[in-house]
Amino acid sequence: MEGIGGDGASVASPLPQWGHDAWRMYQYYLDKTTPHTAYRWIGTLVVAALYCLRVYYVQGFYIVSYGLGIYLLNLLIGFLSPLVDPEIEASDGPLLPTKGSDEFKPFIRRLPEFKFWYSMTKAFCIAFVMTFFSLFDVPVFWPILLCYWIVLFVLTMRRQIAHMIKYKYIPFNIGKQKYTGKKASASSSGSRGD
């Protein structure tokens, strides 16, 4: 391998090049997963199930699980929130329609689906690795953490749902919208001589 000079006098270390090649390979395969949404989420569910089984088997790492739960809740709020929050920012850009007469503007997420999936999967992987180090197994009374997280989830989602209702947006696209034309009246369809 030749160095930057090209004369062979200075030889570059293969470690940075290897790291760069590994990162490019990782990014290549990550990019290839982009259109396969269902398979990506199935993979994430498998990783989440492995994490849950690990925590159940070890009977510990409740602080790690609590931190993971708070992080996932934060990601979910970003996923459900619009890019431009009409409550906070009054901008000249596209806003969500607030009246029926307003022009339709598509819902743009603050956290896109791919980044939501990627961050969630990374979080489960990091938490899974943390379960192999006893340093992170802090003894706590886990039912209190679970109750606190449930209360936090309910209050946060109630606020988010109220925001959705107030600004009339739905953060999910369920298929392509189909519009039907005018329906023919019963009297006009019965008079045809087919």
Rank of each mutant, 00 (worst) to 15 (best):
D85T: 10
I161D: 01
Y148P: 00
L96G: 07
C147E: 03
T34G: 00
T121S: 09
T37R: 15
A12C: 09
Y62I: 04
T37N: 09
T98P: 00
I126R: 07
G19P: 01
R54F: 09
I174F: 07
A90T: 15
W117I: 01
W149N: 00
M25Q: 06
F153A: 15
L73W: 04
M130V: 03
T156H: 02
Y51L: 15
L111Q: 11
V129N: 00
R109Y: 12
S191C: 08
L155R: 14
A123I: 13
M1F: 06
L76V: 11
R159N: 10
R192M: 05
K182D: 04
Y26V: 09
T33N: 04
W41A: 01
G78E: 03
W18E: 10
R159L: 10
A184I: 00
M130S: 10
R110D: 14
G60L: 03
Y66S: 00
P143K: 04
L135H: 04
E87N: 05
Y118Q: 08
E103W: 13
E89P: 06
T34K: 06
Y39G: 05
Y29W: 11
A123V: 10
D137C: 08
I77C: 04
G6D: 14
W41L: 06
K32W: 02
S134I: 00
A48R: 09
E103D: 08
G3R: 00
N173S: 06
W18S: 08
L53Q: 09
E103R: 15
G78P: 02
F133P: 02
L145Y: 13
A184H: 03
F153V: 14
R159A: 13
L155T: 11
F124V: 13
S10N: 13
D194W: 10
L111M: 13
L50Q: 05
Y51T: 08
L96Q: 06
C125E: 06
T121M: 07
V84Y: 05
V47S: 10
V47R: 05
I77G: 02
Y39R: 11
M25H: 10
P139G: 13
K182V: 02
L75D: 02
Q27G: 05
L145F: 12
F141V: 15
A184T: 00
Y148L: 04
Q59V: 04
V47A: 12
F133M: 11
V64Y: 08
C125K: 14
P97G: 01
F104H: 09
G6E: 14
Y167S: 00
V138E: 01
T121Y: 06
P82W: 03
G93T: 08
Y179H: 15
